[in-house]
Amino acid sequence: MDKTDKELRELLDIAFHDAQLDAPSADFTDVVMNQIKASEEQVKFAYKPIISRNVLGVMGVLFVVLLIFLTFQLDSASSNWFSQTLSSKWISELTMPKFELPFSRILVYTIGTMGLLVMVQTTLLKGYFDKRLA
């Protein structure tokens, strides 16, 4: 066994003594560097929400706490302040003031069309960037 192993070692030493490594294509380094540059560009344009997840989470928790707080407040107050206020006569007599601003029809249509165009453009741009960064 030892002798076979010795012979094997000698055989492979001879075999690999002057064996050369294979070389990739001439532009290999350039291709790798271009891929790295492209991946860096992708990182620059990476999707990042305006409000981070943490902030959204905190906002969500605050919203739920506020909701619970208000529910309890209203429940406890419903027997006195809330019922009294809402059922009081004077509140039912309240009417919303009427605003009559001098908007012409053309102005309303223009603003409406502009809004529509912005929405269409936003959708198209979102699709374009999603494709580019995919």
Binding site: L21, A23, T29
Partner: peptide, 21 residues
Amino acid sequence: ETAAFSEVVDAYKNLVFSLAL
């Protein structure tokens, strides 16, 4: 200095490529 990475590629590309091959 991203460009300096090309030195790494040049130094190891033959063996990495041979291993893959």
